[in-house]
Amino acid sequence: MGRYFIKRLLSTIPLLLVISFLVFMFIHMIPGDPAKLIAGQDSTQAEVETVRKQLGLDQPLLKQYGQYMKGLVTGDLGDSIRNGKSVVETIAPRLKPTIMLTVSAMIWATIIGVALGIISAVFHGRILDYVGMIIAISGISVPSFWLGLELIQGFSVALNWLPTGGLDSWQSYILPSLTMGAGIMAILARFTRSSMLETMREDYVRTARAKGLKESLVVMRHAFKNSLIEIITVAGLQIGGLLSGSVMAETVFSIPGLGRLLVDSINFRDYKVVQALLLFFAAEYIFINLIVDVLYGVINPKVRYD
């Protein structure tokens, strides 16, 4: 498996190269001129040209890409156009809030989502199934922006239990992680339910029951364990999404995360920050997929890596 892991890791390099090229070209192709934004609304064209020269944006695109790649290899991602801080300095402080929120949202969403899914599958067609699915459907249909504002109205303004935003204490994580996790909880509940319903119709489950095993054992060991692969795949994709930052939750709860940084940087045409972020997100997705693939083998030893 070690060899498989290394092979997979190495295979990401050409993939990332292609991504970096596409990202670079797309960003530079969208209309908008950071030089104009920096020089200001009342700047003259000559002033804009001066700024453009200073930023190196007057060079041919391919040459700019070459310089960018050279920087990437040597670990120098350049400086943010907006305020001159280095790209690493700009992104690094935004990682922690995003990671903390991803973890806290994933934990509760996975536990509740999977539990709801199992309960709905076991009590298929009965009242508990309907209740579970109503919760799941609400979770997925409520816009997170609205949910966040409602939670603030309820828990911060009316009850004064929790802060409205920021990340100063552990309490401040509660509302944003509830907001971010709601949709994921719903998705996981629905996937768990459908996958469980499928496996519970399998012959080996019938055999297990016929052997006289306790129902809880049948559900958890035989049915659930076989549904896990699907659940992990879905959960992995969701983690990838959350790690790219959640613009909505970050905006409502004033959290300085990666999502807001990306949007701000795109609006300012802060090319270097946008490039670095997108490449980072791509690498993150690839890596999480790799972990998920490895986990398949852990869960089901029948999965072979060649």
């Binding site: 603030i152 303004v157 004064n160 802060p163 409205t164 409502v252 709860f253 004033s254 807001r260």
Partner: peptide, 18 residues
């Protein structure tokens, strides 16, 4: 000076005294 992009959240902060 706190950066709070959402207007509804800013209003809530004023209401709670934050």
């Amino acid at each position: 000076i706190r950066e709070v992009p959402e207007a509804g959240s800013r209003t809530a902060m004023l209401q709670t005294g934050e």
